[in-house]
């Protein structure tokens, strides 16, 4: 059954259409990757789910209930934003204390702190950390909660290969425990390694939704990269559209 369901959701920011009538389902126990070129609406989709942005039309259901104007459903979602900026003067240890208190939820950060080697800079202030350190802390801050759904926006950004491998192992074991993971990414190799399902967005439109295997079978390709190219070319051909250069726009 679908844990999350987007029903023809549209969102525009001023003149830019970020999402156009997108419907999609996140199945319980799946590892769904939202993929697509820059500016395709990946982060928007996630922000709508997290209640950070409000859709212009359409509804989003979490476990069958409309999330509009609600906040309690987020108890069941742990979120890692694309770029984490915590108050520069707070220490890493304080951040680990802050989120459980805010959520009023127990957390188990120690294995993650161990795993990502965070303990060496646990007492440093956030402002003094490097990009990689920050990414690890952000990940740990999301994954330390025991919730059904984890939403990770670009989890591999700035991670070194060792940490990426560790992350894959970690996520895999979580999936084995029946957790659901929704993430965005543009490193196709990472997506291929871990995703069971794919939502493919281009310029705010959904080009594909379904199991990764199905995508490869249907496009008769062996890699996600090739599948993506095929999808874009084919889709535009079918609809008589050109593949235009991506509009330059920052997604925040």
């Amino acid at each position: 059954m679908a844990l999350v369901e987007f029903r023809s959701v549209s969102k525009r920011y001023q003149r830019v259409v970020a999402l156009d009538q997108v419907s999609a389902r996140i199945l319980e126990g799946s590892c769904t990757a939202v993929v697509g070129p820059n500016g395709s609406g990946k982060t928007t989709l996630i922000k709508l789910l997290m209640g950070l942005a409000i859709p212009d039309s359409g509804t989003i259901l979490f476990r069958g209930t409309d999330i509009r104007g609600k906040y309690a459903y987020r108890r069941h979602i742990a979120y890692m934003p694309q770029l984490s900026y915590f108050p520069a003067n707070l220490r890493v240890s304080e951040l680990f204390a802050l989120l459980p208190r805010l959520r009023r939820q127990p957390a188990n950060p120690n294995p993650l702190i161990e795993r990502f080697g965070i303990h060496t800079y646990l007492h440093k202030r956030w402002g003094t950390l490097s990009g990689g350190m920050k990414q690890k802390v952000s990940l740990a801050l999301a994954l330390m909660f025991d919730v059904p759904l984890y939403v990770l926006d670009e989890p591999t950004n700035g991670l070194d290969p060792v940490a990426t491998r560790d992350l894959i192992r970690l996520l895999t074991s979580m999936l084995n425990q029946g957790k659901t993971i929704l993430f965005t990414g543009h490193v196709m190799a990472f997506v291929e390694r871990i995703a069971s399902h794919v939502i493919f967005l281009v310029e705010g439109k959904k080009y594909f939704e379904g199991a990764l295997k199905e995508l490869l079978t249907r496009t008769r390709t062996s890699s996600l990269e090739e599948a993506a190219v095929h999808l874009i070319m084919n889709h535009s051909g079918v609809q008589g559209l050109e593949v235009r250069p991506q509009p330059v726009r920052t997604e925040s």
Binding site: G51, L52, Y79, P81, Y85, P87, L102, R103, S252
Partner: peptide, 11 residues
């Protein structure tokens, strides 16, 4: 950006 994280919490 921190606000964004806070807003994504169940509050």
């Amino acid at each position: 950006d921190f606000q964004e994280l806070l807003l994504a919490q169940p509050l």
